[in-house]
Design a protein around this nucleic acid. Structure first.
Length: 735
DNA sequence: GACCTGCTGCGGATTG
């Protein structure tokens, strides 16, 4: 066998040599042959910091170098990233790799000057680093030039592949890449990079939706990797009535800090101060809450403030300040963050990860764990779990110690190297509306037949049936998004023109309106529009305390000044969907009698208490539990199935709620619920669409407001419900 | 019981 390294072009070999590498990593060796010698699509899956970028670019650059003699100039590599910050980071890395190879590298996103973009459009060359939204803008504004700009395209590289699969942005990216292939009349090989792909087959069919195309999967996992993981338990004291008393108006008050929150903060302070760590707190509200408590602790002990908040509603300046601080080794800093620091940008050496309460996905845990332990130390994560003190009124969830079991099950799955396959479902009609308008902008018009071919035949919308597509076009006509010329060609209607000509058109995902928060005229961040603050109320934001001095609903501005009181802000948001495998693992953990090794003393105690309750109520075999007027149903399934059960029961007149570990049917009895479920198994509703009719607030996609009631029910049902899987699960219960 | 992501072209004035 030949050494794959020998296949690389001379200048690329010289670059490898200059790095002082003794050998290439396994993933880098494995990637060379398929990328260099074939036109297959390739997925490179390997842990964080394993050199995936180099694995893709060493063979790609080798190919470009051997091609340069024949090629006239033109964009040769299209590298797509989900974050601007990632493009800025990769620009430096790739420029170093191409040093002396005469291959220019151009970044393109919203912060790059129009001049630089124009220069590239006029004389495209080398490697383009770009976001999906900026490709969209290229299509809409420079449609006729697409084939000229990309005629020499050799490869498309998709970084952080997992971040696209299953959502609007993924469908949009599939559509854009497909449209580039169509413009060039050939298939450009694609290379996908990721550390957390739960299912390689799903990833492969995302990369290339066309059937009968081979995707080469290169998976390099380091089995010997040591991990340090602990799940720590904390118990809250049930709140006393005095603490719930309402404050006098204008009084500077703070929500009381619960004792378990205080203990968690104390442990973070004691364990993490003096080094670099990331603290993931799951919600922006919790980030602010812990940032405030930890700042006070630092002030009380008269030490420098070493805990900084970081989330998406903070201004860019505040976020970048925190990032700079943790990059410096001289000043130890901890950043308390949401998922903002889960992916991408290199923030230097992080000693350990703290996770406050479980995230919703094992893949998020894995991604977060991968941010620590970069310099020889094993990745380290402490998960802090809160459980309520048990009182006579305590819920069944509290008695089962649900949070401890969920965190333990997720940790076990992480150790088993499992993570969620992406949830690929839904019609994505909102994104289809966007792509229809975009294709028309690109070509200055299109026929219904052309749209159908581009979008559905080998395209990203092959799951959309023709009658739905026809209905959608009619609807778009009625809402003035489209109009039809006498020759049959479709053009933008009055409303379509307005939407597609504004820069807010390029993103496929939905964003809420927001207020801007100002201190002395300076922006510190944003708050969602539907949660306006009253004048004279107190707020904790950016880790500091403020008084609201003015609210301007027209300009969407809130003015603040420093204060001593304050409460963490409330943000809006839906719920996460837990995967069924996590509930299956939780069930196994309740049935089991051995103790996982990663528990501390208190969480071991919680596991024992949860198992006692589980055994006393015979929940291993029994899936009903009458609780006063309510009935708890134990399905041990994911949230899509449990949400579908709730909707199915409502359809049969039984009110129910998905409470996580249980579905609770309210004010009813066991017999009535069993009757309803048996009837459902025998006479299920015909479709998810039918099930959606009684649901309110069905606008989830950006352009859902243009759908008819029928299409909206179809769309909503396809995204949120799964009758088939639910019936399979129910039938198992009755067998 | 949630989080995150992204974003024009054009004209006119000013400067080198």
């Amino acid at each position: 066998m030949t050494d794959p390294y020998q296949l690389l072009a001379q200048p690329v070999q010289r670059w490898v040599h200059k790095q002082g590498w003794e050998s290439l990593r396994p993933i880098q060796n494995a990637a060379i042959e398929p990328i260099l010698n074939t036109d297959d699509d390739v997925i490179l899956s390997a842990s964080t910091a394993s050199g995936k970028t180099e694995a893709a670019f060493l063979p790609i650059l080798s190919r470009l170098i051997s091609n340069t003699e024949e090629q006239e100039s033109g964009c040769q590599v299209l590298y797509v990233a989900p974050l601007k910050a990632l493009i800025n980071d990769q620009l430096n890395r790739i420029e170093l790799m191409t040093d002396g190879m005469n291959i220019p590298v151009t970044p393109w996103h919203g912060d790059i000057s129009a001049t630089r973009k124009k220069k590239f459009r006029d004389k495209p060359d080398g490697i383009l680093l770009i976001t999906p939204e900026s490709i969209e803008s290229l299509m809409v504004n420079h449609g006729p030039h697409i084939s000229r700009i990309f005629h020499a395209l050799s490869h498309v590289v998709i970084d952080e592949l997992h971040s696209y699969i299953g959502d609007e942005r993924g469908i949009q990216l599939q559509s854009l890449l497909h449209r580039i292939d169509i413009a060039l009349r050939r298939r450009v090989p694609r290379v996908g990079l990721s550390a957390t792909l739960g299912d390689m087959d799903i990833a492969a069919s995302f990369m290339r939706p066309e059937k009968k195309r081979k995707v080469v999967l290169i998976n390099s996992s380091d089995d010997a990797e040591e991990l340090r993981i602990q799940v720590r338990g904390y118990e809250s004291v049930a709140p006393s009535l005095e603490k719930l008393a309402l404050p006098e108006e204008d009084e500077e008050v703070n929500e009381p800090v619960e004792n378990d929150v205080f203990q968690i903060a104390q442990h973070l302070y004691k364990t993490l101060r003096g080094s670099h760590n990331l603290i993931f707190a799951n919600s922006r509200r919790n980030v602010e809450h812990y940032a405030d408590i930890l700042r006070q602790m630092c002030e009380e002990h008269r030490v420098p403030i070493e805990f900084l908040p970081h989330h998406g509603s903070l201004s860019k300046e505040i976020r970048e300040f925190a990032e700079e601080q943790i990059k410096k080794s001289s000043t130890p800093k901890n950043i308390i963050c949401t998922s903002t620091l889960e992916m991408g940008i290199d923030i230097g050496d992080v000693g350990s990860i703290a996770q406050i309460e479980s995230p919703f996905e094992v893949s998020a845990m894995r991604q977060r764990l991968g941010r620590s332990g970069r310099r020889g130390d094993p990745p380290t994560m402490r998960t802090y779990i809160r459980e309520e003190e048990l009182v006579p009124m305590s819920s069944v969830q509290a008695r089962l110690r649900e949070h401890t079991f969920q965190a333990s099950a997720m940790t076990q799955l992480l150790l088993n190297k499992w993570c969620e396959p992406p949830l690929v479902k839904g019609l994505h009609l909102s994104t289809m509306i966007q792509q229809i308008l975009s294709i028309i902008a690109q070509h200055g018009g299109a026929t219904a037949d052309q749209l159908w071919k581009v979008l559905t035949v080998d395209g990203p919308f092959s799951h959309v049936e023709q009658p739905v597509f026809v209905d959608l076009l009619k609807q778009m006509g009625e809402k003035q998004l489209l109009m039809q010329m006498t020759d049959g060609a479709l053009h933008h209607g009055k409303v379509g023109e307005q939407i597609a000509n504004h820069y807010s058109f390029y993103a496929a995902f939905n964003t809420p309106e927001e207020f801007t928060l100002l201190v002395g005229g300076k922006r510190i961040g944003r708050l969602p529009f539907d949660r306006p603050l009253a004048v004279h109320s107190y707020l904790i934001f950016a880790g500091k305390r403020w008084l609201v001095i003015n609210v301007d609903p027209d300009k969407k501005i809130i003015d603040l000044k420093p204060a001593k009181g304050g409460n963490p802000p409330i943000f809006t948001g839906g719920g996460g969907l837990l995967h069924g495998e996590i509930r299956h693992e939780m069930y196994r953990l309740y049935c089991d009698s051995t103790e996982p090794t990663f528990l501390n003393k208190q969480s071991r105690e919680f596991i024992k208490e949860g198992r006692d309750f589980f055994a006393r109520n015979k929940l291993k075999d029994q899936w009903f539990l009458q609780d006063g007027k309510d009935v708890h149903l134990f399905f041990w399934e994911g949230d899509v199935i449990q949400d579908t059960v709730v909707a199915l029961l409502a359809y049969h007149g039984v009110r129910a709620e998905n409470g996580g570990i249980v579905v609770t049917a309210i004010e009813t009895n066991k017999d009535r619920v069993i009757n309803a479920l048996e009837e459902l198994v025998d006479y299920p509703p015909k479709s998810e669409e039918e099930l959606s009719r009684e649901i309110k607030n069905k606008w989830i996609g950006k352009f859902d407001n243009f759908l008819s009631d029928d299409l909206l029910n179809k769309s909503y049902g396809s995204h949120r419900f799964d009758i088939e899987d639910t019936l399979t699960s129910l039938k198992k219960k009755f067998s």
